Amino acid sequence: MSNIETLIEGLGDLGIELSVKQKEHFIKYKDLLKEWNEKINITAITDDIEIDIKHFLDSLTPIITKLFEGKKKIIDIGTGGGFPGLPLKIFNNELQVTLLDSLNKRIIFLNEVIKALELKNIDAIHGRAEEFGRTPKYREQYDICISRAVASLDTLSEYSLPFVKVGGYFISMKGSEVDEELKEAEKGIKLLGGKILKKEIVRIPNSDIIHSLIIIHKIQETPTKYPRGGGKPKKNPL
């Protein structure tokens, strides 16, 4: 059975305490992550302490924004092994969560985790953000879209902002060097109905890793022509 001491300790630094059930959930999640990772490539991070720091603690740092309290509806774009959406759901069970990833094998893994933890109001779906963002069922339906995906902010904003309802937020989890990206993305974000609210610098507890949370407020509807299909957001960012 996995050890989550580093996670417990790190959350203590943020003034957060986990319940017995939450601890059990994180242990089970980590066990499944390591077990499945031997069969399919979900993450390059397999060490107990590294998983606690680089996956679990990193995924939980958005809690400091206070935007994840209560019954919010959130979507996690390019979720991979479930980060940050699944740890946020374990932390606040009231969240209604959609995990979206373009690799079906990851979705199969995530469904296993959801089943093992008996979580409700959480869906793992296989698909591409530029297609789902144009679908009425998903378009402008979420209080928060969050992403830890590696695309540049201008590309990511076109994938993400269409999911957010007016008044909601898109949160992009980035490294520490993000000012250049912010500058390049500003025009596109405005075009998509967003406004950069702030850049929150966070240090992941128990590490010297510094990350940024880019918080974008959705102030008007996204024009219907976005997101563009055919890989355009990546090839030719706004």
Rank of each mutant, 00 (worst) to 15 (best):
T43D: 01
I42F: 01
I16R: 08
K165A: 11
L33I: 05
K66N: 15
R228P: 06
E140W: 11
K72R: 02
M1E: 04
N92T: 04
K235Q: 06
L7Y: 07
V178T: 07
R228G: 05
L14P: 00
T222Y: 06
L213R: 13
N104P: 05
I77D: 05
L88E: 09
T46K: 08
D48G: 11
L238E: 09
I216T: 06
I171V: 13
K28P: 05
D101Q: 14
K72Y: 03
G229D: 00
L110C: 03
T79Q: 15
F91M: 15
I146L: 15
L14A: 02
I63Q: 01
G85C: 10
Y159S: 10
G78C: 10
G70M: 01
E69S: 09
P205Y: 07
A124M: 13
D101L: 14
L238Y: 10
K183R: 14
K218N: 09
D31Q: 13
S172V: 00
P205L: 12
G82L: 14
G127K: 05
C145H: 04
N3Q: 08
N37F: 04
E186F: 14
Y138H: 02
L119G: 02
H211E: 01
I4A: 06
H126T: 08
L100R: 09
L119P: 02
C145A: 15
L33Q: 08
I63T: 02
F83D: 02
L191F: 08
Y29C: 08
G70R: 04
V178E: 01
L86K: 02
E180R: 14
I40W: 07
S59E: 01
S172W: 12
D58A: 01
K105D: 05
S152Y: 09
N93M: 05
K30V: 10
G70W: 00
K39F: 07
E112W: 08
K198A: 10
I146C: 12
G78S: 09
H55T: 11
H55Y: 09
K105Y: 14
E181C: 08
K183F: 14
S152Q: 11
E69H: 04
L117E: 03
S147I: 01
S157D: 07
A116F: 07
N111R: 15
I171K: 13
E38S: 13
P237L: 12
L95P: 13
T65V: 05
S172K: 15
N92P: 02
K232C: 06
A151W: 07
K66S: 12
L117Q: 13
L117W: 13
I144L: 11
T155P: 01
I27S: 09
L32V: 05
S147P: 08
G175A: 01
G231S: 10
N3V: 07
L191P: 00
Q141T: 03
G168I: 06
K174P: 02
S59L: 09
K28Y: 00
K225S: 12
E69L: 10
E184H: 14
H217W: 12
S59M: 10
S147E: 09
C145F: 00
S212L: 05
Q96H: 12
K21M: 04
F132N: 11
K190L: 14
D123L: 15
E200D: 08
D179C: 02
E177I: 09
D47R: 12
S157C: 07
E69G: 06
F163K: 13
V164A: 14
K89H: 12
E118S: 04
I204S: 01
K73S: 05
T155Y: 02
N104Y: 14
P136I: 13
I90A: 03
I219Q: 10
G194L: 14
L7V: 11
S2R: 15
T222V: 08
G12S: 12
